[in-house]
Amino acid sequence: MDARTNERYRKRLLELREELRREGAVEIEPLREGLEPTEKIDEDAAPLTEMNQVIASNRNRLRTRRLQQIAEALERLDEEPDEFGLCESCDEPIPPRRMELQPWVHLCITCQSEQEEQDAPGSRKHLTDYR
Rank of each mutant, 00 (worst) to 15 (best):
L20D: 08
R21P: 04
R22H: 13
R22V: 12
R22K: 15
E23W: 01
E23K: 14
G24F: 05
A25M: 03
A25C: 03
V26P: 00
I28V: 15
L31K: 04
L31P: 01
E33S: 15
E33D: 11
G34Y: 12
G34F: 13
G34W: 14
L35Q: 09
E36I: 00
E36G: 07
T38F: 00
K40R: 15
E43K: 07
A45K: 14
A46N: 11
P47S: 11
P47Q: 11
L48G: 13
L48I: 05
E50W: 00
E50K: 10
V54P: 03
I55H: 01
I55L: 14
A56D: 09
N58E: 15
N60M: 01
N60H: 04
R61V: 03
R61D: 02
L62P: 00
R63S: 12
R63P: 06
R63K: 11
T64M: 08
T64A: 13
R65Q: 13
R65N: 09
R66I: 02
L67W: 10
L67C: 13
Q68N: 12
Q68S: 14
I70S: 05
I70C: 03
A71R: 08
E72F: 01
L74H: 01
E75P: 09
E75F: 09
E75W: 14
D78S: 04
D78W: 14
E79T: 06
E79G: 02
E80G: 00
D82W: 00
E83T: 06
E83D: 13
E83G: 04
E83N: 05
E83R: 13
F84S: 05
G85E: 09
G85H: 01
G85T: 01
L86C: 08
C87F: 06
C87M: 00
C87L: 07
E88Q: 14
C90T: 02
C90L: 10
D91Q: 15
E92G: 08
E92T: 06
I94K: 02
I94Q: 07
I94F: 05
I94D: 02
P95T: 02
P95H: 12
P95K: 12
R97S: 10
R97A: 11
R97D: 10
R97N: 07
R98V: 01
M99N: 08
M99T: 07
E100I: 06
Q102L: 12
P103C: 03
W104H: 08
L107S: 03
C108W: 03
I109C: 01
C111W: 06
C111H: 00
C111S: 07
C111D: 04
S113C: 01
S113N: 12
Q115W: 10
E116F: 11
D119I: 06
A120E: 14
A120N: 09
